[in-house]
């Protein structure tokens, strides 16, 4: 952690290469957590609307792997691979996510589950090895969701602009 000296909220050292997404779900956290632990649950919600998964192998334990194919609504298949690096039941899941076991661009996400009244707040913090890999992942996922190729240059451009703008 380093002070920015501009009165801005404290930022972690990885702020320029991470993405944080959070969501409150109106259910007890044991139940929300459970939806992450079995493939019969995961296959019901993993991916945006219209996406499905086909699992080759799945073993939910620290060091275990989930090897699967993500099918896009347009028929495109994406190889996906996940390994769990830490599992603290109902509280926290850390995982590495890539296209295969030897993917050099695999990245880490940490999911935390915290009670929020009767609901549960999920925070997913993903840290990419480099800022460039973060930007590439944003682009890749943009493409997965049917972004037009012709827009990808503009996409990279405005992402860069937004970052510079936010820094300035």
């Amino acid at each position: 952690m380093s002070a920015t000296g501009r009165g801005a909220p404290a930022q972690s050292a990885t702020a320029d290469r991470e993405i944080v997404i959070s969501r409150v779900i109106d259910a007890p956290r044991e139940l929300v957590f459970e939806a992450f632990t079995e493939v019969r649950h995961l296959s019901r919600w993993w991916g945006p609307a219209g996406f499905t998964t086909t699992t080759r192998s799945f073993e939910f334990r620290e060091g275990g792997e989930w090897d699967f194919v993500l099918h896009g609504p347009d028929g495109t298949d994406y190889q996906e691979w996940i390994t769990w690096t830490e599992i603290a039941p109902s509280e926290r899941i850390a995982l590495r996510h890539g296209e295969s076991r030897d993917d050099p661009n695999a990245f880490e996400s940490v999911l935390t589950f915290a009670p929020d009244g009767a609901a549960t707040r999920i925070v997913m913090r993903t840290v990419f090895p480099t800022q460039q890999l973060r930007d590439e992942a944003v682009e890749k996922y943009h493409a997965i969701q049917g972004g037009q190729q012709t827009l990808s240059n503009l996409a990279a451009y405005v992402t860069d602009l937004a970052r510079k703008g936010a820094e300035g």
Binding site: V138, E139, Y141, H142, G147
Partner: peptide, 8 residues
């Protein structure tokens, strides 16, 4: 543009 955020 943030496809990763959208995906999740």
């Amino acid at each position: 543009v943030g496809g990763f955020e959208r995906f999740w």
